[in-house]
């Protein structure tokens, strides 16, 4: 009879036996450097995405003529195309019509372009959740439009949008994994070379650990923030 258990043991043993700690120690600094690049690009791109998204959401909410159409078109394009294709086009395509973006700029622009559309939708939902009563109350105590947006609408819109902003942020951080296609030495770039030379167990382990170390803290911070906001009773 075929011995499943033995086969299974062998199976896992093989995986374990392959773990080469010398390899891990040798390449860990490389992963650390790559992780720093990934984090910096992600941070810059996401901050820009939030600003761009907020601007688009406000333009659409207040129905600014002309600009609202531009913003609407941009949101549809950014949300309905993959980041990888956006990057390919930005990096390899646009140079041909004279628009030269270097790798780092291209990565940040690409991430901000993609994220801006998603963030705009998050803020739109937040702004729409601010009730008419709240707006009229703000007006009735004599706030100007600018003050109304700043002190009444934005804080409430942010509170409502936090779960979506959180999901978008994590999504964007995961999307950074494609940056190697525009020749940036990020985590995947480092891993790709090592994977081709074998040692895939160690390499993938370091890759997973690196991403977990980057994304988990962000995820935890956001869920704490969400809980705090929910406790404050913003939703009602």
């Amino acid at each position: 009879m075929y011995d499943c258990a033995a086969k299974g043991r062998e199976f896992f043993h093989q995986g374990e036996a392959d773990l080469d700690s010398a390899f891990v120690i040798e390449y860990a600094p490389m992963f650390a450097r790559a992780a720093v690049l990934t984090v910096s690009l992600a941070a810059a791109g996401i901050v820009l995405a939030v600003i761009l998204g907020l601007a688009c959401a406000l333009i659409r909410y207040f129905k600014v003529p002309v600009l609202r159409r531009v913003a609407g078109f941009y949101i549809e394009v950014s949300r309905n195309t993959p980041l990888m294709i956006q990057l390919f086009f930005l990096y390899y395509g646009l140079t041909r019509i004279g628009i030269l973006l270097e790798g780092v700029t291209c990565a940040i622009v690409g991430l901000a372009f993609l994220g801006g559309g998603y963030m705009a939708e998050a803020f739109r939902a937040g702004l729409e959740a601010v009730s008419r009563n709240q707006i009229e109350t703000g007006l009735s105590i004599g706030l100007s439009r600018r003050q109304l947006i700043r002190y009444v609408m934005l804080p409430q819109a942010f509170a409502v949008a936090i779960p979506a902003i959180s999901a978008n942020t994590i999504f964007l951080m995961k999307e950074t994994s494609v940056f190697s296609i525009i020749a940036l030495p990020d985590l995947v770039y480092v891993a790709k070379d090592l994977l081709k030379e074998g040692h895939s167990g160690e390499t993938n382990l370091m890759l997973v650990v690196s991403y977990l170390m980057i994304i988990l803290p962000v995820s935890i911070i956001f869920s704490l923030l969400e809980r705090r906001v929910r406790r404050a009773g913003f939703s009602g």
Partner: peptide, 16 residues
């Protein structure tokens, strides 16, 4: 509006 105080049916305090 700073000279006219208004109170609404929906007691809308700013929740934040």
């Amino acid at each position: 509006r700073q000279k006219i105080g208004m109170v609404f049916q929906s007691y809308d305090l700013f929740p934040h």
